[in-house]
Design a protein around this nucleic acid. Structure first.
Lengths: 349, 349
DNA sequence: AGTCTGGTGGCAATCGATTGCCACAGATGG
DNA sequence: CCATCTGTGGCAATCGATTGCCACCAGACT
C-alpha cells in the first residue's frame, strides 16, 4: 500500500501542453532570469498552467542538465557543542534564503570521518561546502582549494590560508581577558587549551603569550598547556594536572567554554573555589554559560554572525566573486561575569 | 579562474570504455544489488576501471532515472535548543550509515516556515522526512500521511496518529516527578508548560493532573498553566504570574528545561530560593542542566536514542515495512539533583 | 518594394545512469 | 542431432528540464 510513491507529478511537458506552447517555451517562461525572453501574454499563460497543475520542476532533471545541485554541505565537528548551534543556524538561514539546501554532516571530531564526509558531499555534487572542522593542515580540506566545490571555513582555518576563513577575533578577545585578569591583580596565569593542530588553539595561545609578555614588567607570567581535545574531560585533566604542578596559578584562561567547564570540575575536586581561589575565563560564550555557578566570564564571539558571514562568503564565491585572501575577522568581546575576581590575598606573591 | 568548475568527472561511459564493455554492463557490474548478474572476471575488470578513473556516479542522473534522491529532510523547531542536538545527531548518524544525506531545515518554531520547509524538502524530492516540529493538528504535516514522502515524527505527534511517532514516555517520567515531590512533602504543585497545540504539552500536562489526582487523598493538588511557547522567556512570565497568584505553591513541574530555566529567573526575581522555597523539576535533561545552580532535577529522555529510532523507523518505511500505528515510546527516567527538596516548614499547610 | 532587424517561439540535442528486452553462446537433455 | 535453457552482455529507450540554434513574423528603413 505504501508502494504508490511512483505517483509522479506534472512535468513541464504537461504545463506546456496546457498552455498550448512548446516545453522549451514553458521552461523559458518560468525562468525568472530571462525577463522578456517570452512575451508577457504567453508567459502568464504558462505561469497559470504551472500553478493550476501544481508544477514543481524536478531537481534531478534540472541538476543533470545545469550541473548545479542547489546543495551546500555543512561539515561540523560535533553538533552537541552548543557553540555550533547558532553558527549552523546562521549558515542554514542564509543559504536557504538564497535557495540552497543544507546537507549536514557531523564528524564527531574525527579526521577520518571528516574526510569521508567531504567525499560524500562531493559525490552528491554539493556546489559549496562550509567547513567548521578544519585542522591546520588537512590534506582533504586543502585539496578543496585546488579542485572540488567552493569551500569556506568557519572558525578553524588552514595554515596555508588556501581557503577563505571566517573567524572571530580571538586574539583581541583573549588579550582583553589577560588584561582583565592582570588588572584584577593576578600575576600567575595559565592557559589550558586544545590540540595544536587547530588554528583556533594557536591563535588563542599566541595571543595569551603575547599579552602576558606585554605585561611582563608588571610581573605577569603564563603557563600554557595543550590537551587532546576541546572537551570537558580534556579541561578536567588539564586543570587537575595544572593545579597540582602550579599551585601559584590564580587564574586560568581556558581555550574554550567546554574546557572551562572541565576546569570547574577540577577545582571543585581540589577543593578550590572559583573565583575565590582561582579565576576562570572561558571562550565562545556558548549558550547557558551565563547560568553556570559561577556565571562564566568568557570571550563572546558573534556566533550567529559567523555562520551568516560564512554563508555569504560562500554565496559570493558561487556567484563568481573573488574572495579576499585575508581571513574575515569578526569582533569579539570579553563578557565579565562572576568567575573572575581578585586573587586571594594570601597567595599574592 | 574559479570558473573551471565545469571539469566534469568520468562517466560510466568512460569506465565502460576502459573496461571494454557496454555502459549497461558497467552499470550492472557496479550494482552491488545484482550479484552474479555479470560474470566475475568482467565485473572485476569494470571495478578496476572505475577505481582507476576515480569514477563516482552522478547522483542527478541516477536520481532522474531511479526516482530516488538519497535525501532525507530533517525539520526541527530550533537548533539552539540543546535537547535537539543529540536527537539530530542520532538521526544524522543513522541515516548516513544507511547512505542517506540529511537536509536540515530549522523552522524557528514558526508554522509558516514549517510548511515552507516541508514544501521545499518535497520539491527537492526527499525520500523521507523526520519532523520534530509537528503541532497536534497541522494540515501541512497531516497531508504527508496521504501523499508525499514517507514521514516520521519525533517527540511531537499528531492528534490523528496518522503518522508514526517516536517519543519518550513523558507520562511515566512526569508521574515519577510528581510522586517524588509528593514524597518530599509538597502538597501544592504547579505545572508550567507550553502551548496546548503540542502533543508533548498535553501528554505531560495530563500525566501531571492524573498523578496528582491519584495522590489527592494525601492532599496533593496542582495548578496547570500554559504559555505561548517553550522558551526561557515563557517560563519566566509563567512563573512570575504563578508565584504571585499562588503563593501556596511550593513545587513546580516545568514542561521542559527551558521553561524551568525561566522559572529559576522568576524565583530569583521574587527573592525565592530554589529549592529552599520552591522546588523545581525540568524535563528533557538537556546538556548542562546538571551544572546549573541548583543542578536541575529533571526527567531525562533518551535523546540520542530518539533520533536513532526515528531514523530507523523511517528506514523501515522506506524499505517497505508497515509501521505500527502505535507510537514508539522510549523509557524516561527521573534524575534527582539539587533543585528539589522538602518544602519550607513554615509554609506547610 | 525589398531587405534588415528585433522579438518570439519551436526543434532537438543533451546531461548520465539505469533497465526492460533481446541476442548470442554454450550447455544440457531428449 | 535438434530443441531448450541458462548465463552473460548489448541495445536503446527513458527519466525531465534546459538551451543553442534556427525559423518565422511584423515592422521599419532605404
Amino acid at each position: 500500500m505504501a508502494r504508490d510513491a511512483a505517483a509522479r507529478g506534472p512535468t513541464i511537458r504537461d504545463v506546456a501542453a496546457l498552455a498550448g506552447v512548446h516545453p522549451s517555451t514553458a521552461s523559458r517562461a518560468l525562468d525568472a532570469s530571462l525577463p522578456g525572453r517570452i512575451a508577457e501574454p504567453t508567459a502568464s499563460r504558462v505561469r497559470a498552467a504551472a500553478h493550476a497543475l501544481g508544477y514543481v520542476p524536478d531537481p534531478a532533471a534540472r541538476s543533470l542538465r545545469t550541473r548545479r545541485s542547489g546543495l551546500v554541505g555543512v561539515v561540523i565537528p560535533d553538533l552537541t557543542n552548543p557553540v555550533l548551534a547558532p553558527i549552523v543556524q546562521g549558515v542554514e538561514e542564509t543559504l536557504r534564503a538564497a535557495g540552497f539546501g543544507c546537507l549536514l554532516a557531523d564528524t564527531d571530531n574525527d579526521p577520518a570521518r571528516e574526510e569521508a564526509a567531504i567525499a560524500d558531499l562531493e559525490a552528491r555534487r554539493c556546489e559549496g561546502l562550509v567547513i567548521a572542522t578544519a585542522r591546520r593542515r588537512s590534506a582533504a580540506v586543502e585539496r578543496l582549494a585546488k579542485s572540488g566545490p567552493a569551500a569556506v571555513l568557519v572558525t578553524r582555518g588552514l595554515d596555508t590560508g588556501a581557503l577563505p576563513l571566517v573567524a572571530a577575533d580571538d586574539a583581541q578577545g583573549v588579550a582583553a581577558a589577560v588584561r582583565h585578569l592582570a588588572a584584577l591583580g593576578h600575576r600567575h596565569l595559565a592557559h589550558l587549551t586544545g590540540p595544536r593542530d587547530l588554528s583556533t588553539t594557536v591563535r588563542r595561545a599566541r595571543a595569551v603569550r603575547e599579552s602576558a609578555k606585554a605585561l611582563k614588567s608588571s610581573g605577569v607570567d603564563v603557563v600554557v598547556r595543550h590537551g587532546a581535545g576541546f572537551t570537558i574531560a580534556d579541561g578536567h585533566r588539564l586543570a587537575r594536572a595544572l593545579l597540582s604542578a602550579h599551585p601559584e596559578v590564580t587564574a586560568i584562561v581556558a581555550g574554550n567554554d567546554m574546557i572551562a567547564l572541565g576546569c570547574l570540575d577540577a577545582m571543585a575536586e581540589a577543593g578550590l573555589r572559583c573565583p575565590g581561589d582561582v579565576s576562570l575565563v572561558g571562550h565562545n560564550d556558548m549558550p547557558f554559560v551565563d547560568r553556570l555557578e559561577p556565571a562564566l566570564t568568557t570571550v563572546a564571539i558573534p556566533q550567529r554572525a559567523l555562520g551568516v558571514r560564512a554563508a555569504e562568503v560562500l554565496l559570493g564565491r558561487l556567484a563568481g566573486e573573488t574572495v579576499a585572501a585575508e581571513p574575515l575577522v569578526l569582533p569579539t568581546e570579553l563578557v565579565v561575569r562572576r568567575s573572575t575576581a581578585p586573587p586571594p590575598a594570601a597567595r599574592r606573591s
